[in-house]
Amino acid sequence: MIRREDTGLLVIDIQGRLAQIVHESEQMLANTANLINGARLLQLPVLWLEQNPERLGSTTASLAELLAPAEPITKYTFDACKEPSFVEAVRRTKVSTWLVCGVETHICVYQTVMHLKKLGYDVELVCDCVSSRTLFNKQLAMEKMAARGIGMTSVEMCLYELVVDCRAGEFRDLLKIVR
């Protein structure tokens, strides 16, 4: 079970035209907005990445607005853990578990998730907040990650897990997000 006090959210490369052409992009973007809103409500540390923004464009405006005032971490490697500023930002959060969402599931998400695990972090892939240009590549990446010990979750599942109790002060606001 994930715990609020040691969990953070990582948003990977939901940017430019790519965010619009991945499989079921509208639903993935809506789910990701709910996840970010839930993470903010629960005061989780949130990090976000942009892959080569000069070429791929900025984070989708609706998500960037939710992620502000923080700034994205720019990367050029597919595996974000090869970017020293990202690894330092991860370490500064002092969390041990990362909820991960983003695109593309089989490239940047997969490589970053596997490296985070290698660095000793627990990782939960938020499956309804990841996508690839093809469903096949998304499914293949999810199967491969699951086989290698990466947890699988959904927006609702992880947010309810984090809030724990229907008497929690944030619960009513959380309901507004997930419904």
Rank of each mutant, 00 (worst) to 15 (best):
residue 27 Q to V: 14
residue 69 P to T: 14
residue 53 P to V: 01
residue 130 V to E: 00
residue 154 S to Y: 08
residue 123 V to E: 00
residue 169 G to S: 14
residue 137 N to K: 09
residue 76 Y to H: 10
residue 33 A to M: 06
residue 150 I to K: 00
residue 110 Y to I: 05
residue 74 T to W: 03
residue 111 Q to M: 12
residue 54 E to M: 14
residue 145 M to I: 13
residue 36 I to K: 01
residue 94 K to P: 03
residue 164 V to W: 05
residue 80 A to K: 08
residue 168 A to K: 08
residue 148 R to V: 02
residue 50 E to C: 07
residue 38 G to Q: 09
residue 81 C to W: 03
residue 144 K to D: 00
residue 54 E to K: 15
residue 44 L to R: 11
residue 101 C to D: 02
residue 140 L to Y: 06
residue 60 T to L: 10
residue 150 I to C: 00
residue 50 E to F: 03
residue 57 G to T: 11
residue 112 T to N: 03
residue 162 L to F: 13
residue 39 A to N: 08
residue 126 V to Y: 00
residue 41 L to V: 12
residue 48 W to Y: 15
residue 52 N to K: 10
residue 146 A to V: 02
residue 46 V to F: 05
residue 36 I to D: 01
residue 145 M to L: 14
residue 72 P to N: 10
residue 86 F to G: 04
residue 91 R to E: 08
residue 86 F to E: 02
residue 144 K to I: 00
residue 98 W to C: 14
residue 62 S to W: 03
residue 173 D to V: 08
residue 127 C to Y: 01
residue 56 L to P: 04
residue 160 Y to F: 15
residue 103 V to W: 02
residue 70 A to N: 09
residue 35 L to R: 08
residue 58 S to L: 14
residue 167 R to S: 12
residue 27 Q to A: 15
residue 67 L to K: 05
residue 135 L to H: 06
residue 67 L to W: 01
